[in-house]
């Protein structure tokens, strides 16, 4: 997806566009993402402690059911149509944790249910999450390889 070279007239116009275009409120977005992301992490920690206490597990193992619960909550809120309204304010605070991943999968799956279970839901489910999975697997492979070589 190489960008085209702009002509002088196009460059001149784009400079005007940049002057008129409002800038995002970086400070406000960062603050809200920090607070909401922090709250998601606090909830995650509470779940880890809870599972560790109820199931009598070491904290490392209790994080698995905790992550699953967070995914469930992200998916549930998406299905109830609440997630996108929260994310409007929370931004990266909800998108970066596993809740954002859950939202991207469930939102895609819901969106394409009218196109059927195979070509709709199943095929389109990873529309947004696909790149995350691809890069996750590739990175894990490279790190694993480096680890095996230099161990």
């Amino acid at each position: 997806m190489a960008k085209k070279k702009l002509t002088p007239a196009q460059r001149k116009y784009q400079a005007k566009v940049r002057q008129v275009e409002p800038r995002p409120h970086y400070l406000r977005h960062t603050f809200l993402a920090f607070i909401s992301g922090g709250l998601v992490c606090v909830l995650g920690q509470v779940l880890i402690d809870l599972y560790s206490w109820i199931l009598n597990l070491p904290p490392e193992e209790a994080s698995n059911p905790a992550v699953a619960t967070m995914i469930f909550l992200g998916a549930l809120l998406t299905g109830l149509g609440v997630f996108d309204k929260l994310a409007k304010y929370a931004g990266a605070g909800l998108a970066v944790p596993v809740t954002g991943f859950a939202n991207s999968v469930v939102a895609s799956a819901l969106e394409f249910r009218e196109e059927g279970l195979i070509y709709g839901v199943s095929a389109k489910m990873f529309l947004l999450a696909g790149p995350v999975i691809t890069f996750g697997v590739v990175t894990a492979f490279i790190i694993g390889l480096l680890y095996a070589i230099f161990q």
Binding site: G79, G81, F83, D84, A87, L94, S108, E111, L128
Partner: peptide, 17 residues
């Protein structure tokens, strides 16, 4: 939205413009 941008329940932030 679903044709040009994201699934409708996707939690993205909109730009001011």
């Amino acid at each position: 939205e679903r044709q040009y941008r994201y699934p409708t329940e996707y939690g993205g932030q909109r730009r001011a413009y």
